[in-house]
Design a protein around this nucleic acid. Structure first.
Lengths: 187, 187
DNA sequence: TGGGTTGCGATGCGCATGCATCGGAATAAT
DNA sequence: ATTATTCCGATGCATGCGCATCGCAACCCA
């Protein structure tokens, strides 16, 4: 075995193993042993990369947040961006489940909440920019755009949850999102 | 000890202990021992009331769902109902955390998902009725009302999550909700 | 009043968990 | 080539878990 190992790439590998397990069984099904097996490394390696389990979870959440953020930045147009945030397509279902699992734990875990807040702050900023660019000017264009961004962000997350729970089909959720975007006024 | 015990009331007591713990430490902090202690009964009593832990969790979720549903039915006006669903006030924070915890687990637990779906179906029906009553008639008034209800429900849940995570203050979330209700068109 | 029955509280069991430890293998330096 | 250093895989440990078991206490009924 090499004396020098690329720790960063290994951390990413482990983070994706965490996500795979969280997708399958929820965050409570994530154990160090299972993570190690899923990642194809030994438990010792996992422990070397992360001092504690919480540290591993925080890294994993940061990792998936960055993945989502990257996709969001790559998307063009308010509608596309909103759809990416809502994680409605089948291919993003896993990330959606991971997001929901982490969101629930964040409600009782300040470190995880901090990561999510940063993620939301960035998403909100991007949405605000896009909404302002659509040019619905008013007496308080900036404030209105920020408000509309908050609405859109919350709507997208709510739709994600409703799809995961099975209350809405992905198609119905997409329709709600489209309809909202088509009709939401600036004020 | 009495040979006959009111099992239903004891089940409710236990369900509220589950909620208290889930509020404090999340659903993963809910153990049979802690639930028994919180409820002021012995572990054996908990096991007598519920054959298994999952059965207890399903009952607890049903219990809190009914509490929320009762408050929703008691509220008057679309705005009040939506606010109740969003669980934004400080007094309902505990129920909000419990809801988020259960929602996350429901994504990987069909029995819990079934309970939540029933809850959402009822809430959606109520919101649809209220929206239709506001009298925004159109070419497809019924369909529009249902669509608007889906939007409002998802928005309310998203706002709940964002408050719990700390991305929004309860006040800001309420403002988003009010603004949405004040400006959302029928089509 | 005394069984019979029912409910329950305490205890035990097997197992899984997170974390700590340690011996050895694989390189880099000399 | 040898040594020294770095890394890691396996194992051990204490704890906490859900669930099963069992003996005792309390009530209904005769």
């Amino acid at each position: 075995m090499p004396r020098q190992v690329d720790h960063d790439s290994r951390r990413r590998t482990i983070a994706e193993a965490v996500c795979a397990l969280a997708d399958r069984d929820g965050l409570e099904g994530v154990t160090l042993r299972d993570v190690a097996e899923e990642a194809g490394v030994s438990m010792g390696a996992v422990q070397r990369c992360f001092r504690t389990k919480d540290e591993m979870l925080v890294f994993a959440l940061t990792h998936v947040s960055e993945q989502v953020a990257a996709r969001i930045r790559r998307a063009h147009g308010l509608g596309r961006v909103a759809a990416e945030i809502a994680l409605l397509t089948e291919g993003h279902r896993a990330q959606a489940r991971v997001w929901l699992a982490f969101a629930a734990r964040a409600a009782v875990s300040p470190p995880l909440a901090a990561v999510l807040r940063a993620h939301y702050a960035e998403a909100h900023a991007l949405l605000t920019r896009l909404i302002q660019a659509t040019g619905d000017d008013g007496p308080d264009a900036a404030g209105d755009a920020a408000e509309r961004a908050r609405t859109l962000l919350a709507l997208a997350d709510g739709l994600t949850a409703h799809v995961l729970i099975g209350h809405l089909t992905p198609h119905a959720a997409q329709a709600v999102l489209d309809h909202h975007l088509a009709t939401a006024p600036a004020r």
